[in-house]
Design a protein around this nucleic acid. Structure first.
Lengths: 213, 213
DNA sequence: TAGATTGTTAATCGATTAACAATC
DNA sequence: TAGATTGTTAATCGATTAACAATC
């Protein structure tokens, strides 16, 4: 038994556990102890056991954890066994790369439509999806009922499109826009990516603390 | 005066301050108080003042902060005024998108070379850079002396290439590989991106806590 | 059974928030 | 000067680590 809401820190570690366990499984591991997993991941055994105990008792005293079963549990917790329909807005460089590079299926989603406003891009094929005119977004959503949206549109268009998408039933936003998406509705999930911020922190680390007073 | 090492939490907030201050400046703001900035960013005024005081005294009692000066200071702290040469390895979908989509200059870097192993991709132009054969990496690095590297190569190649790049003088890795880069050398900076993990947490948030016991 | 390792409680550490004197 | 708001110290909160009894 544990507290009934999961902290952000824990949630952010779950996909990483899932990945490491997948690799262990691929390398033939059947069982693993929290101590050994901690070593491989650069965490402490305590933290790993605390994290897992938010969701249940997945191990066995004296034995450890079954790699495959544990991975299955974490996948289920993350909802990776679901297939939530998702659309992508903005098929520029980044949008096209996300559409073709990301394995949506293994992350709990399925990309079902790609939309853009530019005449040069509409009609192009990305994987097996043809880029549609954004003017057709409403009717598409009423039919396909996507629940997620990837935003790769220009910053200026973001706020307006988000309003519209919420009206069309979108519940999860994966936002690559240079715009900090913050939504009040409690039932809408947002993940802001901000690759530029990520690169800026790397710049800091290249010469850390030289400005500390 | 403050502690002489900056916590990760603070560092991760710096680029966001920088972005918000840029927007405020563009909107004609000259001064701002910690209270008002906190409101706009969804933080507390205390946290903002604590964060800034890691680096110095940038405000003025009774007045607040000068938007433009504060933004300048944070940019300097992040090292965005430097121009560190950077190369990119792996010009697939994602690599090409990063190369053309990211504004390296405003993040303290400059993209000076793109490398790939595939015959179909070598010779292609991305922006004003021609993709080079990865076999020429060593001689290129000896001449151009890049200090940063973006990794968009397959997971399998990552570990080996990183070793090589360290030998060639690379000090900062921006890693998009499905591989958790962890380096012991204290003078080498790593930023792991893991877009898949980001999407997986969105999947969790779509149906949170349904698995909490 | 003895050894190992979990699940869980208690202790520690660090980050965030609150409070307020300093000062512009 | 009076009002506002910082810089900074103290209090609180949350997350990580340590410890250990439970148990496989």
């Amino acid at each position: 038994m544990s507290k009934n809401t999961i902290s952000n820190s824990v949630i952010r570690r779950l996909p990483r556990y899932h990945r490491f366990l997948g690799e262990l499984e691929a390398n033939g591991y059947v069982r693993i102890s929290s101590r050994e997993l901690a070593e491989k991941m650069g965490l402490t055994a305590s933290q790993i056991r605390q994290d897992f105990n938010c969701f249940g008792e997945f191990g066995q005293q004296g034995y450890g954890y079954n790699v495959s079963a544990l991975r299955g549990e974490i996948g289920r917790i993350l909802g990776l066994d679901r297939v939530t329909p998702m659309i992508l807005l903005g098929a520029g460089n980044l949008g096209r790369a996300i559409a073709s590079h990301i394995d949506f299926r293994s992350k709990g989603f399925e990309l079902v439509g790609i939309f853009d406003a530019s005449k040069e891009i509409i009609g192009r094929k990305i994987g097996d999806i043809t880029v549609s005119d954004i003017s057709g977004l409403d009717s598409f959503c009423r039919e396909a009922e996507p629940k997620g949206a990837v935003l790769c549109i220009p910053k200026e268009a973001a706020a307006k499109e988000v309003e519209r998408l919420i009206g069309l039933g979108i519940k999860a936003f994966w936002n690559f826009t240079h715009y900090d998406l913050r939504i009040d509705h409690a039932d809408i999930a947002v993940e802001n990516v901000h690759l530029g911020d990520s690169l800026a922190t790397l710049s800091y680390r290249l010469n850390p603390d030289s400005n500390v007073c």
